[in-house]
Design a protein around this nucleic acid. Structure first.
Lengths: 206, 206
DNA sequence: CTAGAATATGAGCGATTGCTCGCTTTCGAT
DNA sequence: ATCGAAAGCGAGCAATCGCTCATATTCTAG
């Protein structure tokens, strides 16, 4: 018993100096992850890049996984903020207009830090049971399901559960792949948004 | 000059004994990948599981990457066989019927070895520049684009390039996630196919 | 039968990994 | 000025990694 989870901080920083250390460590982890990938992100190197000793690292993070978990949490926090901001404006609009808002929101979310997002998407499955990740995805998912309920009378589909899965999965995949292409002009990006919107609206409407 | 690619076999096996060794190594790699993930697949362990010495491993594979590349190639080979079989029957049919065939083909492709497929999808990006992977994806992509050309008059969309991206990405993501859920009944699977077909057909048609 | 080519072996190298622990420095409260 | 707690340090350990190489075994062709 008492096997403490490996993703929780070892102790929390009370003084400001230590909070700066923690920040530097998370930031260094993110930067290494983006620049060189998961494998090259050793604890020694993270500490070095953060300008901190390994010992200090292990004062606040019980494992390498915990570091990555912290990076994920920070990134998701940022994304959720972005999404909610866009989402609020969409709720009142008619279906076609609001779907477009949602798609735009998804694009913006992926643009928060595309390269970090890519690495995390690839590596998250390997960071073991990471309760926050599942929670985060369910939150996104539930948010959209709730949106569908709101527009229920305008929809043709019967199974809202399935419809949510279809929409969220498609939009996520499309925006994810599109943003990672990087070399897209604004023109191309808008075309992508147009098509994605059309895809979803036609699927839902009758 | 002369920096030989790390994914090509070091030498090819001419006798049958050595061909068996190579097979055992690839098979062992696949099994470890599925059971314990990429990180746990050390060359020493692969050799051990294959019932072969590390030395023999390095006679045929110049690096760990080459091993994984071989697993990928074998898996893709199997998938391509599955897809082509289904695809041939779809070409003549009207849009609605043929799209359904294509979606079914995608599902079957993902069902060849779902758990291996998952690991590979996660790890492929890390196996460096792996020319065959890109080639494989483009083949899939081109195949569908070609299909769209065939039905051009039935379509509303103008930009076939973009339309291919939208369709392939969506269907791939939907089937991938659905198959990985694993606990789906046949009933649920059919519903998923229905919805995916509807999604694509409505998007394309006018 | 024999020689040489093909194949197989595994101890072990140098490098790197995640991480510990004894110790020092800095801080805040008195 | 003092002192305990908080924070920081970094040499270095045990484990593991990918991989080599000198040696041994098995095959095939003449």
């Amino acid at each position: 018993m008492g096997a403490r989870p490996l993703t929780k901080p070892r102790k929390d920083a009370s003084q400001e100096r230590s909070r700066a250390t923690v920040d530097a460590l998370v930031e260094a982890t993110a930067r290494i992850l983006v620049k060189d990938g998961f494998d090259k992100a050793s604890t020694n190197r993270i500490a070095e890049v953060a300008g901190v000793s390994v010992g200090s690292l292990y004062q606040y993070f019980p494992s390498k996984e915990a570091l990555v978990a912290a990076v994920i949490a920070r990134h998701q926090q940022e994304i959720l903020r972005t999404v909610r901001r866009e989402l609020a404006e969409a709720m009142g609009l008619p279906l076609a207009k609001s779907v477009r808002k949602l798609v735009t929101a998804a694009v913006k979310a992926h643009r928060v830090d595309p390269r970090l997002h890519r690495v995390l998407a690839e590596q998250i499955p390997r960071v073991g049971k990471l309760e926050d990740v599942g929670t985060f995805n369910r939150e996104n998912y539930a948010l959209f399901r709730n949106y569908l309920e709101t527009h229920r009378d305008e929809l043709h589909v019967d199974d809202l559960e399935l419809a949510s899965f279809v929409c969220v999965t498609s939009v996520e995949a499309l925006t994810h792949n599109a943003v990672l292409a990087e070399k897209l002009s604004d023109k191309a990006m808008e075309a992508l948004i147009d098509h994605t919107t059309r895809l979803i609206v036609r699927y839902l409407k009758n």
